[in-house]
Write a protein that binds this DNA or RNA. Structure first.
Lengths: 335, 335
DNA sequence: TCTCATTGTGCAACCGGTTGCAAAACCGAG
DNA sequence: CTCGGTTTTGCAACCGGTTGCACAATGAGA
């Protein structure tokens, strides 16, 4: 039998011999419909493969069931080129889908906060997942001003603010302890900017671990990049120039660790024999570098899902609660 | 002066002392409004920072100005873990934004084609960008059956079908020629599945280049993976077991090339001194591997933009026209 | 001054759902 | 059989835009 396409809830209503309100209620599993009627309507809907218009629904309910995943286009750590952001995004997409939400990709221009209104006020999205380091305060402020539901990756001291972050201090300590335990004597640190509290915490934890013997790490043995690979390359060279006896480095991001390894290779140092390298993030590629990278895992995919579920909780129930996902040392070949 | 938030076009109409139709036309830059009226309305809109509801607009015009970027969750080359897909996605997001479209991330389940209806029929999106290898035919067929506008990455012989691909044969030839020119004598090939026409073409071009001297490459010197890094690792080991005198490999994907390099390192072969490696794709990370990867660039970001612009052309003007983006050899350290 | 185009503007229907409220249907108890 | 209460159902308004069509205003030509 030929089944004409059902355009709207009205068509389905006619077919079932009821009113559109009843159909609407049946499709939303409302208790205000009789069981028999509901079953009949649902069977019919399934039979005709009917899909109600999400647009109409959105207009009527003033909620789009869509959120924006915002990445700062020019942020080296969080831009569209950053493997880290992209992996978080994957996790978030999965989480949102499970919760029945769609995910829109938005590239924010660091300069203007205007994107927030563009997407929220126009009703395109119900909330935001924010992925940014460099302009975090500005972006968060824009969202707070708008009273928009959002979650943000990384620690955030603003209020109200639902952040999902990891225990950076613990991560730093795990890295330091591992290097100390494997007998390293001169351990350097490569960070992102010290304006970034993530970096500060990682360094802090790292220092604690190393502090059992002050000779292991001196404050001078630190260099800073921007989380990008080339900046890790540069930073490693700086460290080597400053102190040729370095026998280990802890980099606060895997891409920088990878850059450091490249610098070491260029200067003929073997990893891990001459210099051990520990990274931070556990990117997808980090298992496949040569040598594979020992690193602190932030369980990126889980983090993405958490960002998703917290945001939905905020949108639907007004719950604003930050989360901390666990970190873990992943032992591979580089240290 | 305090500016109350304008909820709708009606509010703005009252403010301007005109009807909502006029406001609607003014905002859409219709020629049916007087210039003076239009200017006045636009000024007012700007002043009050008014954003019309995209939802209402979508309902009325039956177009969401949103497209879905579909990735096959379980496809090793195109899943959410594939750097290649993610980079294309970045390009597509940029292109779509420039064209005033939003991009929704959809993870398709290879098994069911059901996602297409879910998103199109419900009016969530106007079209699809398809990123898949393994289930390409099935997915494309689903879209064709729905008469949905879409563009697909990679060659596609189905009709109607707007594909954006690269000249794989030329790419393969460039790789082969480079290896021959640098004096390699025993050149292996690592492909994805031969069911994949991309791979077939790359091998074909490669063979042409190498054919000037049949001894350079023998049909037996081929191994196949699935574009993932571990599969490249395995394939490289196979080649080495089969013929220890291999002095070069062309891998049909960068992740496999990276896996091959790891295998070579494990077995104590130096790259490029003992064995040269050429990849395919020019991923973001390929510049940062150790050694950095010589590869065939597909200009991934441009490709993403092209996917976007073709799709929009299809949606808005019904134009279905495939595109081929140029390839280029990027010389780095691995060959 | 009167016509007739030519613009410019407004009315009202429509897009396809949701939902408050009234009314109908049903039920058991008295 | 009537009554009061509990389900079920339907009507109609609403969400916030777009657009066909009728009508008003304007200006040029006769």
């Amino acid at each position: 039998m030929k089944k004409p396409r059902l355009r709207s809830i009205d068509d389905l209503a006619k077919l079932a011999g009821v009113s559109k309100s009843t159909v609407s209620r049946a499709l939303n599993d409302s208790p205000l419909v009789g069981v028999a009627t509901k079953d009949k309507i649902l069977a019919l809907a399934k039979d005709y493969d009917f899909r109600p218009s999400v647009t109409a629904r959105a207009l009527s309910t003033r909620s789009s069931r869509t959120v924006a995943f915002v990445i700062d286009a020019y942020d080296p750590e969080c831009g569209l080129h950053s493997p880290f952001s992209l992996e978080i995004m994957g996790g978030a997409a999965t989480g949102l889908h499970e919760l029945g939400y769609g995910m829109l990709i938005v590239q924010a221009d660091g300069a203007r906060g205007d994107w927030a209104e563009e997407y929220l006020v126009s009703g395109r999205v119900d909330g935001f997942i924010l992925m940014t380091y460099e302009n975090k305060r500005r972006h968060v402020q824009a969202l707070v001003d708008l009273e928009a539901p959002f979650t943000v990756w990384g620690s955030c001291d603003m209020d109200p603010c639902c952040s999902v972050s990891t225990d950076n201090r613990l991560g730093g300590r795990l890295a330091g302890e591992h290097l100390v335990a494997t007998g390293r004597r001169r351990i350097g640190f490569i960070g992102g900017s010290m304006d970034d509290s993530e970096v500060v915490q990682r360094l802090l934890g790292f220092s604690e671990a190393v502090a059992i013997d002050r000779s292991l790490h001196t404050p001078g043995l630190e260099a800073f990049g921007d989380f990008s690979e080339p900046s890790g390359f540069v930073a490693m060279n700086e460290l080597l120039d400053r102190d040729g006896s370095v026998d280990a480095v802890f980099a606060a991001g895997d891409m920088m660790a990878i850059g450091a390894i490249r610098a070491l290779a260029t200067r003929g140092r073997r990893v891990p024999d001459d210099v051990a390298v520990v990274g931070y993030d556990d990117l997808f590629v980090s298992a496949f570098t040569t040598p594979s990278l020992t690193t602190i895992s932030q369980h990126i995919a889980d983090t993405g899902r958490t960002l998703a579920s917290r945001l939905v909780a905020n949108i639907e129930r007004g719950v604003v609660e930050s989360a901390v996902v666990p970190v873990e040392l992943i032992k591979r070949d580089s240290a």
